Simulated assay, not measured.
Amino acid sequence: MKQEIEIRTADGVAKAHLFKPDGALRSGAPGVVLYMDAFGLRPALDGMATRLADQGYIVLVPDLFYRAAPYGPFDTSAFSNETSRKAIMALLTGTTQAMTASDSGAFIATLRDNGASGRIGTVGYCFGGGRALTAAGTYPDDVAAAASFHGGNIASEAPDSPHRLAPSIKARVYAGNAGIDQSFPPEQSARLAEALRTAGVDHVIENYVGMDHGWTVPDNGAFDETGAERHWKRLLTFFDETLG
């Protein structure tokens, strides 16, 4: 069941989509924040959230670009158009890790207010991958499982790179990466692994050979059905083991 809601944050009001399992909500249902990719809220992400909800999770998909609303809408071919590419890049660079870290407190509270109990899971795609990890490092007593798929620059040299929060993370971490991805080259994978291992974080970093950036999202030109199903198998097992 999908609901369109609004979330009050420190900086304004964010639109979001909330998904609950059909039928009676079981006691103690885990909550999941799904952090969007660069193209914003749209049916493809709704479908992914619905699949998680069908497994018994309460799922929140917030608009991370709400400070710049209205914008778009964009489809995943937007980067091939110079005008829309510039608009998306402005949204990406204008939405900092610190902003989303602050917002995530309100996202977690919204899940609680809507019946989620126990610790929370986060999962992010592309731009959202780093946000999922940042949430785990910012709210370690809330987030028990954090997953990133084709997350860009999640272990860069930037001062706000998510890997720098590893010492604060109590969650299990899963990072599923495209085989070749300019936004997450091998040196970043090594840096992430070192940071998580040094911090004593239970983690898996997996390289999906042959997959391109965006392979998990159905409306992305890089979508790969076999690779996407592999991602679902990993994600659902990860959440079931950690949040179940």
Rank of each mutant, 00 (worst) to 15 (best):
Q55G: 06
P21H: 03
G121Y: 12
C126H: 13
Y139F: 09
Y57H: 12
F19D: 11
E241N: 11
D212F: 12
S156Q: 15
F74M: 12
A166Q: 05
V217R: 01
P21K: 01
D224W: 07
P159F: 09
F239D: 14
Q182A: 12
A166L: 04
G23K: 11
G128I: 11
M99R: 14
P70T: 15
R51W: 08
R172I: 03
E187K: 15
T226Y: 05
N114W: 02
L18Y: 12
A78N: 05
L235G: 10
Q182G: 02
G227P: 02
S148W: 05
G40F: 12
W215F: 15
G152Y: 04
P30R: 07
M89L: 10
A222W: 07
T242L: 08
T122R: 02
R85D: 00
N177A: 02
F107E: 13
F239S: 12
G151F: 09
L18N: 09
P43W: 10
V173N: 02
D103R: 08
D224T: 01
A145H: 02
A38D: 13
Y139E: 00
N81R: 03
P186A: 11
P167M: 04
A135K: 00
N220P: 04
E225G: 00
A135V: 01
S104A: 04
D142K: 00
L192W: 03
C126G: 11
T50G: 14
L192V: 00
G152S: 09
E4R: 06
T50A: 11
V59T: 04
A90L: 05
Q188L: 14
Y66D: 12
G151Y: 10
T138V: 02
Y35S: 14
I88G: 04
L165F: 04
H203D: 05
